[in-house]
Design a protein around this nucleic acid. Structure first.
Length: 206
DNA sequence: TGCCAGGCCCTCTTTAGGGCCTT
């Protein structure tokens, strides 16, 4: 109950439709306000990583030559995730790559995705921007490794999401913040959040 | 040939345009 998988992909570019592929995936499971499990793997799609992305992520073509196939990694990831709901920072990006890589192994995502970027824009509108690094710095969250590596980014996104849940709980005096409520809030204009929580409090017994 | 992401959000908007965010 209350578990969410936070996921992050490193890729060869921005668009699976233009042929970009995943190069690394990191995923962590949170239960309430704790990380309880982690998964990480590089993956070899057999295509070259552009130079500027190698510089950005530190993931090189040499590293990928030794990496397992995308098919193997995506099957392991599907087993790791099971039917738990998902979250990511700028989830529209990770949704595209997860769906595209899973489609290649004949697997279809069924669970909803929550976006910590959309939630952070609503909860922390006064921050200078809503990049993952900026949010981690301003909220004084732990940095767990190198930015732009999949597991470190997934862990920091998990810390961010747990902070968002904690702030919602305190601000609105909620007993819990289920994934269903996060899905509702990420689509709610800032001015409507209190009203959505009021309705959800009755419906979800919060 | 030349171009090329895509979803969300704001505003000098809605018959649109541009910035943010992800690699």
């Amino acid at each position: 109950m209350g578990k969410i998988v936070i996921i992050d992909f490193e890729t060869t570019g921005l668009s699976p439709r233009l042929g970009d592929r995943a190069t690394e995936v990191g995923a962590v499971i949170i239960d309430g306000h704790k990380i309880i499990d982690k998964y990480q793997s590089l993956m070899n799609a057999g295509i070259a990583i552009p130079g500027f992305i190698q510089q950005l992520t530190g993931i090189t073509n040499t590293m990928l030559r030794q990496a397992p196939t995308c098919q193997k990694v995506m099957q392991e990831l599907a087993d790791f995730i099971g039917d738990m709901p998902l979250a990511a920072h700028n989830a529209s990006f990770d949704t595209l790559f997860l769906d595209a890589e899973w489609e290649r192994i004949g697997y279809q995502r069924r669970q909803p995705f929550t976006c910590s970027l959309l939630l952070a824009r609503r909860l922390y509108p006064h921050f200078p921007d809503h990049k993952l690094g900026t949010l981690v710095r301003h909220l004084k969250l732990p940095t767990t490794g190198t930015y732009h590596r999949a597991l470190a980014d997934a862990e920091m996104t998990a810390s961010l999401l747990m902070n968002i849940k904690k702030d919602l709980q305190q601000q609105y005096n909620l007993s819990s913040v289920p994934h269903e409520l996060l899905c509702l809030l990420q689509k709610t204009p800032k001015a409507g959040i209190a009203n959505v929580i009021k309705k959800a409090r009755l419906k979800l017994d919060l």
